[in-house]
Design a protein around this nucleic acid. Sequence first.
DNA 1: ATCTAAATGCAACAAAGTTGCAATAACTAA
DNA 2: TTAGTTATTGCAACTTTGTTGCATTTAGAT
Lengths: 144, 144
Amino acid sequence: MKVDNIQSLKNILSENGYKITKAREDTFSVLLSPEPQSMAALIDKAHDKVDRVTMYRNIDLFEKLGIVNRIYVGWKYKLELSDSFMEHHHHLSCLSCGKVIDIEDEQHINEFIKSVTDKFNFTPRHHQFEIDGFCNVCSESKKS
Amino acid sequence: MKVDNIQSLKNILSENGYKITKAREDTFSVLLSPEPQSMAALIDKAHDKVDRVTMYRNIDLFEKLGIVNRIYVGWKYKLELSDSFMEHHHHLSCLSCGKVIDIEDEQHINEFIKSVTDKFNFTPRHHQFEIDGFCNVCSESKKS
DNA sequence: ATCTAAATGCAACAAAGTTGCAATAACTAA
DNA sequence: TTAGTTATTGCAACTTTGTTGCATTTAGAT
Ligand SMILES: [Mn+2]
Ligand SMILES: [Mn+2]
Ligand SMILES: [Zn+2]
Ligand SMILES: [Zn+2]
């Protein structure tokens, strides 16, 4: 199920026996962004609407309900609506300068995911493929 | 280069202009384990030999030198000697029961890594591929 | 043996995440 | 619509994790 607007949030919450609250709507609304965001950023965005502790609790709940995913970028996690499943989670990450390069080859990866999940009767919800190393610039400067 | 004993540690340190110290040897020795370990576990293991702060500093250094890798398991990072490069870092992870299934298909993945890193002139040091979702057992019980 | 820079330990701090609890707000059912 | 019940919230206090500054120590060079 796609959860990309307040109404679908409300549906999921009631279907699962959770209350629809102002804090949960506000938590959800700061998640609406094309980019994954750090917990600190979310807390900051919502700080005059929702308490820090409540943010943690509601993000936890949203994760349990499959509304948000946690991904790792450069050794820090970020959060995003899981509606963006299978997008933007393959990167090359430079250990030296921190640059992150997105891998575009979705199809190749999706085929691989299908083959391996089928084999184990596993139902995928989210995935991440990160390759750490050194970008062209940093590899070059290391040779000197 | 393989770094799996104290002597190879000493070599790497001096080759890179770092001093060989008791604290670094002790830090290294607690890393010797078949399983990746949390930072807390490492600090605890070494707590009467090496100060917490020094552990952080030396682990950072070891990462920079490629002696240790950081991997994510269930939303927490763990550390391991990078000697185990390209092993055990592809899993299916069940969001419901926590089961972790190792993916064996190294070859397919290694080919993919080569193709994408070549494209960007990226020098890979480590990678991780995690697929989150629901295992066969948990997928089944959800249908009821 | 002496010198010097690098490395360590300690104390203090900052950031991230958790817990207990009293006050409040959402649903339930009269 | 109101009153009752329970989940949810905010706040304060706390724990855990990671960082910084600095005086002291130690490795390695001469
Ligand atoms: Mn993807
Ligand atoms: Mn591998
Ligand atoms: Zn780089
Ligand atoms: Zn499971």
